[in-house]
Computed example of a mutant assay.
Amino acid sequence: MSQKPVVLFVCIHNAGRSQMAAGYMRALSGGAVEVRSGGSEPGTEINPIAIQAMAEEGIDISQAVPQLMTTEQVQASDAVITMGCGDVCPIFPGKRYEDWDLVDPRGKSIDEVRPIRDDIKARVQALLADILPGSQP
Rank of each mutant, 00 (worst) to 15 (best):
A22F: 04
E98Y: 07
S29M: 09
I46R: 03
D111M: 11
A50L: 06
S37F: 06
R106N: 14
K121M: 07
V10C: 05
A53W: 07
G23K: 02
D99Y: 01
V33L: 04
E56V: 00
A27W: 02
G23Y: 01
V124W: 09
I110V: 13
P133Y: 05
G134Q: 02
P5N: 07
L127H: 07
A122P: 01
A76F: 03
A55S: 14
E41W: 11
H13G: 06
E56F: 00
Q67P: 01
E56P: 00
P115I: 04
D130G: 04
L28A: 07
V88C: 13
D130F: 04
S18H: 05
R96L: 10
E72I: 12
G58Y: 06
I12W: 02
R123N: 09
S135T: 15
V124H: 08
M1F: 05
M25T: 04
P48S: 11
P93I: 12
V80M: 06
H13C: 05
E112C: 08
A27V: 00
E34I: 13
E41Q: 14
R36Q: 10
F9D: 06
L128K: 11
R96T: 12
P133H: 08
I12R: 13
R106M: 13
T44M: 11
M1P: 08
V6T: 15
G107K: 04
L8T: 14
A27G: 01
A76D: 14
A50Y: 05
N14T: 10
G30D: 05
Q73F: 02
G30P: 05
Q52S: 10
D130P: 00
K4L: 12
L68S: 11
D118Y: 08
D111F: 13
A22M: 06
P5K: 07
